[in-house]
Structure formats: C-alpha cells, structure tokens
Design a protein around this nucleic acid. Structure first.
Lengths: 214, 214
DNA sequence: TAGATTGTTAATCGATTAACAATC
DNA sequence: TAGATTGTTAATCGATTAACAATC
C-alpha cells in the first residue's frame, strides 16, 4: 500500500487534494474570490494550519487579511495533480456498472477526462449505443489502446476476468487503471492503479453503526 | 474494576481491516487453514509487524510455527467491524448507478447486507423491477424506513437532490448512509456516513500517471 | 532438535497541531 | 490604525518498523 512518492506529495496530503479542489470549485461557483485556511478547513474537518501546509506544498500561498485567492489555489492544485492536460479514457466492461460510469463520466463537462471508447465481450451489448458511444468488441481493445495511446482504462469487468483483462490493458500500453473489480491487480510499477473497492464502504458503515450503538 | 473498554480502531487500522478480511476470505476459499503475518502482509504491501499489531487489536492471535488460524482471524475481524449481524439496506435513486449497485449488492450472496427496497421519484421507473425488487415511489421512503427500522441507505440521487433526500433519511431514522453523490452531507453525528467519491479516483490516477511520466 | 513465527517493546519515522512573529 | 490571517517553526501526537526473547 505504501506508494513511492519520494519527491511528490505524501499520501495523506494527496488524499486531501481532490477534496480541497472540489471545495474550491464550489466556492468559485458561489462567486467567492478569496477563502481563508480556517474557512476552507472547516468544510473538510481539517485544521487551518494543515490547510496552509498542504496548499504551500503545491505552491499556493495566501495573503494576510484575505486568505487564499481561489483561482490561484485551484490552478496550483490542478498543476500539482497533473490536471492541466487531457486524459483519454475507455470503459472496459459494459455491464450495469460500466453503463453507469459511462453516463457519469460521459456526461461530465470536464475538460480533463475524455471518455473515448467502450468495450465489451457480450455480442448482445457490442454495437449498442451507451452514453453516446457505440460499444466495441473487446478483442479490438488492445489495438485501440495502442493506436490511440489511451491514458486511462476504467475496469468494470467481472472479477474472474479482471486479471486477464488488466494484463491485456498493460500489455497494450495503458497508463493507468481505475479498478472497480474486487481483484487485487498485480501490475508493473510503471502503470498507475486506483482501486474503487465499493464493498469496503459497507464494511466501514457497519463499523460506524456498531460503535454508535454502544 | 478495569474493564477492557474498546477505545475503537484507529483510522488507518480500520481502513486496513476490510482489506485483511477480503484476503482472508480468498485464502479460506483456497483451502488454506493458516497464514503467517508476513504472507498476509505481502498481499497487501504491509509489513509483518503491522499485520500482527492490527490483528492483535481485534483480539486475533497467532501461533508460533503456524501463523494465524484463518477462521479465527476472520471471526475476530467480523466481530470487531460489527459484521456478525444483518443490516437491511435500501437504494435511494434508481438511475444508472442505483441500478448497477442494486445488481451488485442484490446479487451478493452475503449474509450481512440485505437489500430490501429501492426508491425513486421518476414515475417511469417506479413500479419497474430492478434486480428482483419493485421500485417504490420516493414519497413512501420515510415511512418504510421508520416502519422497518432500516439500517443503511445507499444514496445515488443527483447531486442537487442529495442534501434534501439525506435530511429525509436521517429524519426517518436511518442509521448509516453510503453517499455516492458528490455533496458533502452535514449530518448529526449519530448517523454513520461513508462517501464513495467516485471522481476522486480519476484525480489520483492523473497524479499517478504524471509522476510516472517524469 | 532447529528454526519459523509469534507478541510486544522500544526506536524511528512522519504527520498534525499549537504558537507566534510578520503581514497588510 | 487594529486585528484577521498568513508561513513556518517547534512541540506533540500517533503510526510504523526493527528487534528480540519466547514459543512449540
């Protein structure tokens, strides 16, 4: 679980960054121009000193009296996370979850993550349109990834296919995998992996409910 | 008398527990009876001493030579997380994601989380069968939750409805909410909340890809 | 037995927080 | 100005890891 991020952000800091970013987007939408570290921290349950440290770690600095310029802070975080470019993205496995994510990500007006293709093995699904994209046969995936230099694969195939498919994705040169299966993918370190682990949330909820009941 | 008052699991420890549990289930399926802390840790990228500490914190102890009895370890973790009982669960919002999760959770042969109802506002969806459950109108949700003492609500409504709906859920007495919306729910501390935050994974992937490219 | 593995202590490492002079 | 807010240092807190006697 220990990731080597030597010159980069520490893991707890990295985990907070999307959270800051999201909150800053909301504040900006709200018409705010500046926000103090204490105000920003309050939203996320984080102390003000922590916020200042985190923002300083990506090169965002505030002003006395005013706090942080929201646009500047957004810019700094986006730059640190590598969000100042586009990433092409494909969804692999168009079952219920794949469909949901296709709509979720396909609909997003984001400039950052670009859904470009859907793949599935099932002949009943292939050729159908989902979220505006025609589903392609899985066997074309490797070539597509290679030819287009695909950045990200969202992996939503059944557990028993996950290992094999992810090997194919890596072989084809995908740069990152967002893994929604329950399989632990053991991949070369050059490939970035994020695990969604949807079922773990229920376990943690059970714990939360249990301790509150005492 | 000094009772061993369980001060609860620390957050990093709690986060690892579902991971251990899942790995132990796999090992058990595999026919193993014992596993050493170093072997278990290897699967998750965790040091052996850490594993022993974590397991000790839930009352699971190993034997020299043999390591940990897998059944005992599972039992201990399940007990610590509150998984030795059933939780009733409803899905609120039967869009694409709600459908996906209905199938995901509904299909699970688990003894622990029991999907018992689906709710939606859309009159085109209400009455339809999804994952074997008839979708009920949202306005019946509060009564259903109260009457059945529902444990967990899986919240998959659009962002702009999330706040209002979650307030209703809390008012009706739900014990925990698994929040798949991007809204930060501000709820009374008596209610357990887990946030899925599906979009954060993409941000972290982008970062992972970026640092690897350097 | 020989030696793999444990539980636990102590050392280390790293993250969070408190405190405060500097700022505008 | 008065005082809200900063960046940063030092103190604290907590988690991880190394080490090792005890175990069977």
């Amino acid at each position: 679980m220990r990731k080597k991020t030597s010159p980069g952000l520490s893991m707890p800091t990295l985990d907070r960054m999307p959270h800051y970013l999201h909150q800053l987007y909301l504040l900006k939408e709200n018409g705010s121009e500046y926000v103090s570290s204490s105000k920003l921290g309050e939203c996320l349950g984080i102390k003000d000193a922590q916020v200042r440290k985190d923002l300083a770690s990506v090169g965002a600095y505030g002003r006395s009296w005013y706090g942080f310029n929201i646009d500047e802070a957004i810019e700094a975080i986006e730059k640190a996370l590598g969000l100042k470019r586009r990433y092409t993205m494909a969804i692999i496995g168009i079952g219920n979850l794949g469909r949901a994510l296709a709509n979720y990500y396909g609909r997003e007006e984001t400039q950052i993550f670009d859904l470009v293709a859907l793949f599935d093995t099932d002949s009943k699904t292939v050729g159908k349109k989902v979220a505006g994209h025609k589903v392609r046969p899985m066997k074309e995936a490797a070539d597509f990834i290679r030819d287009n230099g695909l950045d990200i694969a969202v992996l939503t195939v059944p557990n028993d296919a996950a290992k094999e498919v992810s090997d194919m994705l890596v072989e084809a040169g995908v740069k990152g995998i967002y893994n929604f299966s329950m399989m632990e993918l053991r991949l070369p370190p050059k490939v970035a992996v994020e695990n969604a682990r949807l079922s773990y949330g229920l376990y943690k909820l059970a714990y939360g409910i249990t301790i509150r009941g005492k």
